[in-house]
Amino acid sequence: MPANDLRRVLARLRDCLAHSDPRAALANTVALVVASNQPFYPLYVYWAVSPTIWPTYVSFLSTPFFLAVPWLMRRSTLLGRATLLFAGIGNTLVCAIALGRSSGVDVFLIPCLVLALLLFRRSERWLGFAFAALAAVVYLAPDGIIGTPGHLYAANEYAALQRLNFISAASLTGLVALLFANILEDKSPSR
């Protein structure tokens, strides 16, 4: 790709992510990072866990919701931020059903919980607490509700899947923390 085309693409991406509300810009960035990484999840599972990757395809069900966040954010920042959390918590639940609790996929509720507590203003804090409670309900849902996954992996494959999910969720949580730290730094007085 020629340099000018790449600059144009990057400029369009910056415009898509930009928002006058720093929390909305943070949510836009997280939504597009997640959506852009979803196509690679089956490949990561293939390389690190097992050639049986078809259960991971359910993660694509949430991709349109993540991609819609910046568009929704232009209409209502509250709706955009709520959509990001519904997509994240919903994706985690669907993946837990498809891959099973032993996959450790529920670790993705941690970045959802962090986002729930950071994305909402003081006047909206009740909504953040509601999303945090929803994440806790999904985590605490009895195994009977989650059910048996469509494919059972071997013990060593589940261990590898847990590592993969932990690294991914920890990286996403770290990104959220870094983005929020940038917001705080921008607001703090210079020294």
Score class of each variant (00 low, 15 high):
165 N>Q: 05
190 S>N: 15
30 V>H: 02
51 P>H: 06
143 D>A: 14
49 V>H: 02
29 T>Y: 07
8 R>H: 09
182 N>Q: 15
15 D>L: 13
53 I>Q: 08
20 S>Y: 12
23 R>K: 14
145 I>F: 14
77 T>Y: 06
90 G>I: 02
159 A>I: 08
115 L>H: 01
108 F>E: 00
46 Y>D: 09
100 G>V: 02
99 L>E: 04
120 F>Y: 09
2 P>E: 15
92 T>I: 03
157 E>H: 04
87 A>E: 01
100 G>Q: 03
121 R>W: 07
131 F>C: 03
157 E>I: 01
184 L>P: 00
63 T>D: 09
172 L>S: 00
145 I>L: 15
58 V>C: 09
146 I>E: 02
72 L>F: 04
164 L>R: 11
175 L>R: 05
87 A>S: 08
138 V>N: 02
77 T>N: 12
73 M>P: 01
62 S>P: 01
138 V>E: 01
171 S>G: 10
33 V>D: 09
168 S>W: 03
53 I>G: 08
128 G>S: 08
109 L>R: 00
108 F>T: 00
11 A>H: 07
36 S>F: 13
148 T>N: 13
79 L>K: 04
111 P>M: 00
35 A>K: 06
47 W>F: 11
84 L>C: 01
12 R>W: 14
72 L>D: 05
84 L>S: 04
115 L>P: 00
48 A>D: 11
126 W>M: 12
102 S>F: 14
163 R>P: 01
108 F>Q: 00
22 P>N: 15
54 W>D: 10
127 L>C: 04
132 A>D: 00
89 I>D: 00
18 A>H: 14
126 W>H: 14
156 N>W: 11
135 A>L: 00
177 A>Y: 03
145 I>M: 14
116 A>T: 05
190 S>H: 15
22 P>C: 15
41 Y>L: 10
112 C>A: 11
145 I>A: 13
46 Y>G: 09
124 E>L: 10
165 N>T: 03
70 P>I: 03
86 F>S: 06
1 M>N: 07
156 N>M: 13
68 A>N: 06
34 V>K: 05
161 L>K: 03
29 T>N: 03
100 G>S: 08
40 F>R: 13
56 T>Y: 04
155 A>P: 07
133 A>K: 05
42 P>Y: 05
143 D>S: 14
57 Y>F: 14
73 M>S: 13
2 P>W: 14
159 A>V: 08
16 C>W: 15
186 D>I: 13
1 M>P: 01
131 F>W: 03
34 V>I: 15
136 A>N: 03
164 L>Q: 11
44 Y>F: 15
96 A>G: 05
178 L>E: 09
177 A>N: 04
7 R>F: 10
78 L>A: 08
43 L>P: 01
75 R>N: 06
168 S>N: 12
191 R>C: 06
70 P>R: 02
107 V>A: 02
133 A>G: 06
47 W>A: 12
53 I>L: 13
185 E>S: 15
17 L>P: 05
12 R>Q: 14
124 E>Q: 13
10 L>R: 12
31 A>Q: 05
138 V>S: 02
33 V>H: 09
104 G>N: 06
28 N>R: 10
184 L>T: 09
